[in-house]
Write a protein that binds this DNA or RNA. Structure first.
Lengths: 334, 334
DNA sequence: ATGAAAGCGCTAACAT
DNA sequence: ATGTTAGCGCTTTCAT
């Protein structure tokens, strides 16, 4: 029952009556091993169930064939990026390992930085950072950021066109005749959230509509905060006829609050989200939202990273994917 | 732009004019370093942004404080287990790293075995295996299996009461007056799937209903295979009035096929799934299903593993969680 | 209080 | 064809 000690290359060497160097050569298919020896060593390897230690190997080589993905939380956005990355990695000969922040809030900011320095050059050949808080550092290995908190820095980045997405959302609403359009905003520390808010303001202005600051409420990409925001917005005497939320999670929270208040979506209130997470298609009514190709962002990030690792010279290291409006049933003409 | 070489303990030592041993002592808060030296070293560490390499450290110590989670695929089940595990790990002082199978089919069976031997004793102190194909091996580190393919072996296991869950599903259907109840089965290589099928047969028998072999179709826990199964079942002249599917993914596929065929759920067809993945609550109509506490399975697996790593002596290493019927709107009395 | 040196498991020069 | 050896970055005796 007690864990057996690991079988090491020395055990194999001893058992096969050769040196560890020979075993290593067999392992790595190097030349200079006779057919007979090679076969014998392989047999012993199989018999003993030996596998080279990834750790020891990493320490020696500086190539591991694994790419890391660092993610703060397994929220819907992160999970989708993850799936896309897992998908892309299949065709690359790399393996994927995922690190999640331990979760202690005090360790939150900059956690990817610590992880990275501990891993890079050793355990991973490069890493994808999902919504990282830091983007300014030069690590020991290539890094690609997906939807970073701060705007494009020197770091290779995959994001989507948040500004245009917000335009699309608001234009859809104004096109439907809405004029009192509120917004539940995202996390002010995130570039994506700021762009979505800017898009809202620009599109309102373009439609000749005044932006009433009172109609902007912080949702912080968080269900609870968004519920409060929605409750505030919807329990006013002169409430907005439409709400644009900075992400789908906020929209879903808003929908729930509306239901509690007896406000019918879309009859009494139009709602547009952002992201198009899988859940958005399954709300009641299904949510009209701005789709970001989240999985594709994960996929592209891995592809970019692999090329970076391979030292390919790239025309550009900033990829911005298009956003588009997905009209479902949470909006209606006024 | 080119990645800087890693800062190593030697760089720090050189910069601080001490030996690497001293730096190591400072790092690990060992006694025998003067206050002054310690402070100086710490300053240099901060200035250089040094972090000890996880790899080198693992190779030396044989304790890493990280637990691994091995998962074949980020499917809904696996993702939920992952969330539960990530949750539980927060309170343990361990860190979680997730490995996903590369995905090449030829490498599929037994992939967790290879990973495990490469990691154990070095990179992770123990591992959680999600729906592993092998359960019979003694590795270098503690292992906990979640919903293993084969039945309980010697390996510590977390699963749920699949047999009782299937009973619940079929009893619900027979209680509603259904008699022609079909089943779309799971993957025959999985213990869980076999138990669900056995439960179906037992409950049918208990209700005095004959099991027509023709009413059993393979769904393999796979959307595509399940669609075919559903199409076959539903396009017969004398079709079943109810279908019990081995998991929710199959149920959702069946629901889609029913819609295509103009068969109304639940009016023309009652449907019961298994798992209660998040998607199940959001189908149209919402799916009646047997809930497994998937996240809790992940949580319990981590808890069990941590105790195993800590050498605690346990009363039992097999945890079976209860399943329960969640009645939503995909079933109706005949 | 500090440092020299051995060694964790492995690979790659460099012998033989 | 095979073996010897150095060294990857770190921790830990064991000197000094």
């Amino acid at each position: 029952m007690n864990p057996l000690p690991r079988v090491t290359i020395r055990d194999v060497a001893a058992e096969a009556n050769v040196s560890v160097a020979t075993v290593s050569k067999v392992l790595n298919r190097r030349y200079g091993v006779s057919e007979a020896t090679s076969e014998r060593v392989n047999r012993v390897i199989r018999e003993m169930g030996y596998e080279a230690s990834l750790v020891a190997r990493s320490l020696r080589n500086h190539k591991t064939n694994v790419i890391g993905l660092l993610i703060a939380d397994f929220d819907p956005f992160g999970s989708e990026v993850l799936k896309g990355a897992a998908d892309a990695v299949r065709h690359t000969g790399f393996e994927l390992v995922v690190y999640s922040a331990g979760g202690r809030p005090d360790e939150h900011v900059g956690w990817e930085r610590r992880y990275l320095s501990r891993l890079s050059g050793t355990l991973v050949d490069g890493a994808v950072l999902v919504t990282p808080t830091v983007t300014d550092v030069n690590y020991g290995a290539p890094i690609v950021a997906v939807d970073p908190h701060t705007g494009p820095s020197g770091m290779p980045t995959v994001d989507s066109d948040n500004l245009r997405g917000a335009h699309l959302a608001v234009e859809h609403l104004t096109g439907l005749g809405h004029r009192r359009i509120a917004m539940i905003t995202g996390r002010p520390d995130l570039q994506s959230a700021r762009l979505r808010e800017r898009g809202y303001r620009e599109a309102m202005a373009a439609a000749g509509l005044p932006v009433e600051e009172d109609l902007l409420r912080l949702g912080a990409y968080d269900p609870e905060v968004s519920r409060d925001a929605a409750r505030d917005l919807l329990s006013r005497p002169h409430r907005p006829t439409a709400i644009f939320t900075a992400n789908d999670t906020s929209a879903i929270a808003t929908m729930e609050v509306a239901a509690e208040l007896g406000i019918c979506v879309p009859d009494d209130l139009s709602l547009v989200g952002f992201d198009d997470i899988p859940e958005a298609a399954r709300t009641q009514p299904p949510l009209t939202t701005v789709a970001q190709p989240i999985r594709e962002m994960g996929r592209r990030a891995v592809e970019l990273l692999v090329r970076l690792i391979g030292q390919e010279s790239l025309e550009t290291t900033h990829i911005t994917l298009v956003t588009r409006l997905v009209e479902r049933h949470s909006t209606r003409a006024i």
